Amino acid sequence: MEKISSRKNNRNYCLFRKIQEEYKMKLYGNLAKFYDLLYSYRDYGKEVNFLVRNLPPIENPRLLDVACGTGSHLEAVRKKLPRAELTGIDLNQDMLDITAEKGLNAKLIKADMRGFDLREKFNLVYCLSSSIQYNLSREDFEKTISSMRKHATDGKVIFDLAYCAERWREGYTNITANSNERYEVAELYTSHSLGGFSHWNPIYLIKDKQTGEIDMHVDKHVIKLWSVPEVEDILRNNNVPYILKQGLSQTEEPSAVPIFILEGLKN
């Protein structure tokens, strides 16, 4: 039974990986320019305050944002640390183009988190917004951890598990909407899981206020629902020192998002 289950999980992984690669680029290409508007409720400043508390006390710290998206965290870091040296990587060029338009004086590079080599070292490497959960297999997760740590020599690596198995809400229906002078944007989805992977199809509605036209986009969204013990097992088996925190505040929040703080590779 164990071998049959293993083969079934492997088929699920291959299927979801194919869906992820085919649809993620399409979605972010179509909706990249609306991403910041849709998620403008996020308190990026609070998240960046947590990052800053984990930086060494130096004048010009060097930070690397892995899966930087449209650069919302980079933008918040720039406001907090005007003299910091910032770099962001992402697999989607449309997202990077929007980040570039923000004029953050950051180096932006198209790269895969599972195997990038920038030939640079940073005081802090971070991967937030549950982006690390796009690693659908243990092997990919280990590759990403290794890539981030080798860029954080004598520094730290921080990532979150916003959609960990412990916090997953099966059948949860969510509606998010926002607007600006030109557009109204809404996202609707109901969460489902299958074989340890999230599996839901968000519907995005975009209304152009000037023309009255409404566009609809349907996404197929897949991430791995890693549990905290699974991630801890990966880190221990790879001899990675880490600290686990609950939430971004200085006090523990039992129901908050798990945050992992890793040591970078030493020189």
Rank of each mutant, 00 (worst) to 15 (best):
K80I: 12
A84K: 03
L86E: 05
L86I: 05
T87Y: 15
T87C: 14
G88T: 00
G88L: 09
G88E: 11
I89F: 11
I89L: 11
I89N: 00
D90H: 00
L91H: 13
L91V: 14
N92V: 07
Q93I: 12
D94N: 07
M95T: 01
L96H: 06
D97H: 13
D97Y: 06
D97M: 07
I98D: 07
K102I: 02
L104A: 07
L104H: 06
L104K: 09
N105H: 13
N105I: 10
A106P: 08
K107D: 13
L108M: 05
L108Y: 04
L108T: 01
K110P: 10
D112C: 07
M113S: 04
R114V: 00
R114Q: 13
R114G: 11
G115K: 10
G115I: 09
F116S: 02
F116R: 08
D117W: 12
R119N: 14
E120P: 00
E120Q: 09
K121E: 11
K121V: 15
F122E: 02
N123E: 12
L124W: 06
V125N: 10
V125W: 11
V125M: 06
Y126W: 00
L128V: 00
S129E: 06
S129F: 15
S130C: 12
S130I: 06
S130Y: 13
I132C: 07
Q133A: 13
Y134K: 05
S137H: 04
E139S: 15
D140S: 12
E142S: 08
T144G: 10
T144D: 08
T144R: 10
I145P: 00
I145F: 08
S146A: 15
S146C: 14
S146F: 14
S147M: 02
S147C: 06
K150N: 12
K150I: 04
